[in-house]
Write a protein that binds this DNA or RNA. Structure first.
Lengths: 226, 226
DNA sequence: ACCTGAACACCGTTCAAGT
DNA sequence: ACCTGAACACCGTTCAAGT
């Protein structure tokens, strides 16, 4: 019996690869949330020490970016809504993008800062640019527009998913409602008058309006116009 | 000599108060950055143990929220640009808001998730709502609009300041430029064609266009229109 | 009521040494 | 080249005990 087979308590430990590490990281995130995907825990899941991961990943930020790009692969870019025009399809893609991020607030937050540069992000950009082109949006406006569209969708996902996950975020929200409703009509007349409007609408309604607003603005606003 | 004066190596240790703690936290942040404002370091700066802070603050998130509201007090809401219309003034307020957040990327990031409910935030909302009202923007559109305007400004600050602070974020950016420029004309034709446009413009130009785009959209888009 | 020492249960990252 | 044990320098939060 060769020495390599003498101890077989666990399934053969697979060789470390960047892909394999990220696979495990995604699984770990799905089971325990991104906040549990630390270098140490990930190493433990891979049956090694944390130092080993630094052969494949420069730091935690790079790990999170890699996880994000993996997740972006789940966004359905081939939405074929029967009879939907380009706006309807663009809305569907962004809604789906938000849904994917919605499951992982911390990831959405990191997406706002560390732009992914992976293949799946490129594919998402391509789809959005194609839809804007189909809608006759001039090139530069479309290019700058996708940025704002994605930024809004990402921020939205970060906010709403955090509100669901952290009980603190929900408390913050209630505190804000109270502060708005209790605003003095003398000091903050507009806030007071608009207290209800400021918190009205479902997340879906807000998103829908936000995207529509952005699209209307993007179509109407030439960068050189001022 | 009373016992209370027998040891006087350091200036009399001031009694802990929430305000005092946050004062110290803001100073600490200015000197060493938000990432250094931990419960432990803050306690050290206050010449006490970390457990003492939990009498006044429920957790680190609450600490960061309090710091944020303090900083919001520095946004100049009385911009009186000679001859500027409401749009010009709104742009100035948001530019100033971004500047204030720009100095502290981590804070900008937290602002996206934990909405501040303090007095300074209320004052900012009031100013923005007043400017939109002056511009004749219908109430509901104005209420939903300030949200998107602030969200965009916040996300923008978070992104650009992170790029300045983390050398990693700058690397990410360069990687993205490369990925865009190197996109295959067959697989990602729109991305390839728009590679330059996607990264063109200064942050200021982008912000200006973004706000203008948003305002045009907000004015043109009724929530009930679909 | 307010404050705190000490502990619990963790982190990221580096580096010299091994294979 | 790849991998790792061990260490360095930290974290947030709790809780029993003190004043």
């Amino acid at each position: 019996m060769p020495a390599s087979q003498s101890r077989r308590e666990r399934p053969a430990k697979p060789a470390l690869t960047r892909e394999g590490i990220i696979d495990t990281a995604v699984k770990l995130m799905e089971q325990e949330g991104l906040q549990r995907v630390t270098m140490r825990r990930l190493a433990q899941a891979l049956d090694t020490g944390p130092a080993s991961l630094y052969v494949y990943l420069a730091n935690t930020a790079e790990l999170h970016a890699a996880i994000l790009d993996r997740l972006l692969g789940r966004v359905d870019l081939d939405v074929t809504l029967a009879g939907a025009d380009w706006r309807g399809r663009l809305d569907a893609v962004l809604a789906n993008y938000e849904e994917v991020l919605f499951a992982h607030p911390a990831l959405a937050r990191s997406a706002l800062v560390a732009r992914p540069a992976g293949g799946n992000y490129l594919a998402l950009l391509e789809t959005l640019l194609a839809l804007l082109a189909e809608g006759g949006v001039p090139d530069l406006q479309a290019a700058w527009g996708v940025d704002v569209l994605l930024q809004t969708a990402t921020a939205s996902a970060a906010e709403h998913s955090a509100r669901r996950e952290d009980s603190n975020a929900e408390q913050d929200w209630n505190q804000l409602r109270q502060a708005l409703a209790g605003a003095s009509p003398d000091v903050h007349p507009h806030v007071r008058a608009q207290a209800d409007n400021l918190v009205s609408g479902t997340p879906a309604e807000r998103r829908r309006w936000g995207i529509d607003t952005l699209l209307n603005g993007i179509q109407a606003t030439t960068p050189q116009s001022w």
